[in-house]
Amino acid sequence: MTKTEIQQLIEAGLPGATVRVLGDDGQHFEAEVIYAGFAGKLPLAQHRMVYATLGDKMGRDIHALQLRTRAA
């Protein structure tokens, strides 16, 4: 996986989100996701929403993803 592919998956799953993904080794990534739909949700719920956009790629194609999330 590339950081661009991860960014596109998150943006497709969370329309209107601002997403920035870092990581160049193909398995370990960092993502910052700013999304209006996170408003009123705890960080764990926000992270679950992001992980849902990645589906079965987590743990298979993406070994580790460090998340920073916040509402827009």
Rank of each mutant, 00 (worst) to 15 (best):
G40K: 00
L44H: 07
D25R: 02
Q7I: 05
A36S: 09
F38H: 12
M1A: 12
L9E: 14
L44S: 07
R70Y: 09
Q7H: 12
T53S: 13
Q46M: 11
M58I: 10
M1H: 15
G23L: 00
D61F: 04
A45R: 04
V50G: 03
I6E: 10
H47V: 02
A12K: 10
T18P: 06
F29N: 00
L22D: 03
T4G: 03
V33F: 12
I10F: 15
R48W: 03
R20I: 08
D61E: 12
Q66N: 11
D56G: 09
A31T: 02
Y51P: 05
V50L: 03
K57V: 04
A52P: 00
G59V: 08
R20D: 11
F38M: 08
L54V: 14
I34W: 06
M1L: 14
T4Q: 05
I34S: 13
Y35E: 07
L42Y: 03
T4L: 03
Q8W: 05
G13A: 15
V50Q: 05
T69I: 13
Q7V: 07
R70F: 08
K57D: 10
M58G: 13
L67D: 09
D24V: 02
L14G: 02
L65M: 02
T53K: 08
L67W: 10
Q66I: 06
A36D: 09
G40P: 01
T69Y: 10
